[in-house]
Write a protein that binds this DNA or RNA. Structure first.
Lengths: 129, 129
DNA sequence: CAGCATCCGTTCTGATACTG
DNA sequence: CAGTATCAGAACGGATGCTG
């Protein structure tokens, strides 16, 4: 039982505006999910996000944040003061993404053991290397 | 309400065995989702998959298929005949992924209009180019 | 502080050609 | 038929240094 039909699927994959692709590209990104998780508790400043997530280069964080802002997942608020202060906050749209993500996370945690076991089997079976 | 806590999240992102990452890496992949959708109706041969999905290079299809097989998402059955015939079929595990994917797809279709509108606003507002 | 510009190594992607 | 081998081009990720 799927929303996607074979025919539609084919076309969708190459349509950059396919809803599924738009969303998949976003949450397939390593940092987007982290940002959403970090902002669930409320707005955070750039440096706070950086510290919270850890190990992310400012350039990459900025890219992620910009993409998410562009998609309306979060708001970027610049406070006119010195030193500068910029707050990021999830929009209702962004917050609503936590649902689907949680679904994925649950599935992942439930099935991880099986997947990992499968990998091990596969690797030991095929490793003639 | 999230399964992920800030602390755990941070660590997880860098742990390649983090359940969320394992799954996200897989379904974030353009072709994996297409393969799953294609195989929902039953097993398919390599060339059938290729035709169904369209535009995918054999090398890339093979990579995708191998990764999915390794994770136990599908089975690869080689029939000893000439010409060769290889069937791919979703395992129960692979089939169970359609649920979470459907959740995402639904969300995507529901919110696409808003996202696209947001992008347009963003682009027209910032395009001094 | 927030972030932009630049540079560079790595990975990914896909096209093309060839084989068991 | 079902891949594998090879290779060039693009995209990505990240480190560094500088600025409003």
């Amino acid at each position: 039982m799927v929303t996607i039909e074979p025919q539609a699927t084919r076309g969708d994959a190459f349509d950059p505006e396919c809803p599924t692709r738009v969303v998949l590209d976003r949450i397939g990104d390593k940092w987007t999910v982290l940002v959403i998780a970090s902002l669930e508790g409320g707005s955070l400043r750039f440096s706070e996000l950086r510290a919270r997530i850890g190990g992310v280069a400012p350039k990459v964080l900025t890219q992620t944040l910009r993409a998410m802002e562009r998609d309306g997942l979060l708001t970027r608020t610049v406070h006119a003061q010195v030193p500068p202060r910029v707050d990021y906050e999830l929009t209702p749209l962004g917050a609503s993404l936590t649902g689907p993500i949680a679904t994925l996370t649950d599935w992942a945690e439930t099935h991880l053991a099986v997947i990992l076991a499968s990998r091990e089997d596969y690797d030991t079976a095929f490793d003639a290397r």
